[in-house]
């Protein structure tokens, strides 16, 4: 799981990119706390061949599940 809550651009996407490059996981959970990060991570994951489901958690946080 990647916890990218509270991180400024472009760190949430960068963390996902580095994990995908290093371990190419079949599924990956990413926590973020703003819409821009949700959109950016989703766009990157789609381009990298992942499907993304977004779940809104309490307290303005989002859990993104990336699946190959």
């Amino acid at each position: 799981m990647i916890d990218a809550r509270g991180l400024a651009c472009p760190l949430p996407v960068l963390k996902v990119q580095q994990e995908v490059k290093k371990n190419a996981p079949n599924t990956l959970e990413v926590l973020v706390d703003n819409n821009a990060a949700v959109q950016n991570v989703t766009r990157f994951a789609n381009n990298a061949g992942y499907k993304v489901s977004v779940k809104e958690l309490e307290d303005e946080e989002f859990s993104l599940t990336l699946t190959k």
Binding site: C9, P10, V13, L14, Q17, A36, N40, R43, F44, N47
Partner: peptide
């Protein structure tokens, strides 16, 4: 739109976005 003059060049290099 989140327009950003740095983000444009940065994301192109880092993420091909």
């Amino acid at each position: 739109s989140r327009l950003c003059m740095v983000g444009g060049l940065r994301d192109s290099v880092m993420f091909k976005e």
